[in-house]
């Protein structure tokens, strides 16, 4: 796999995703501040709005990609063994993929059955 531009690409994605998430978080905080006595119906309705759904899905992609770049940097700095690093990176990538499909399921409102 070519990683000739990987550093610059990661640098740009880390910042673009950060800016998007900052705006999303501020908007979400403003929404919650405007609804001090939030009810289930109001909360549920928010995520039936098209742009809230799309915006949240984009947030999810930004979050997971941003997290991956951060975790990659941390592992590269602190985990010296290449095999252990590859193993840990694989675990995190798998977890992030799980989070992605899980988050998509939540936002698209597919009923989840919680049974332990």
């Amino acid at each position: 796999m070519s990683r000739s531009n990987a550093g610059l690409r990661d640098w740009a994605i880390q910042r673009l995703s950060a800016v998007y998430m900052a705006f999303y978080v501020v908007l979400m905080f403003a929404y919650l501040a405007c609804h001090p006595h939030l009810t289930y119906d109001v909360w549920k309705h928010l995520f039936t709005v098209f742009w809230a759904q799309i915006g949240t899905l984009i947030f999810l992609v930004c979050l997971l990609w941003h997290a991956w770049i951060g975790i990659w940097t941390i592992f590269t700095d602190y985990v010296k063994s290449p095999s252990l690093r590859l193993f840990l990176q694989s675990i995190v990538l798998l977890a992030l993929l799980v989070y992605f499909f899980w988050g998509v399921q939540i936002v698209w409102g597919i009923p989840l059955v919680w049974s332990f």
Binding site: F47, Y99, W102, I106, L112, W114
Partner: peptide, 27 residues
């Protein structure tokens, strides 16, 4: 703080999904 937030992702997803399941869950 970034690493801590990474560890919180599944927790927040769970709470987010739980809050949208039903009025009883939200309560």
């Amino acid at each position: 703080s970034g690493f801590v937030l990474f560890l919180f992702i599944p927790v927040v997803l769970w709470v987010f999904g739980y809050s949208l399941t039903s009025a009883a869950h939200f309560h």
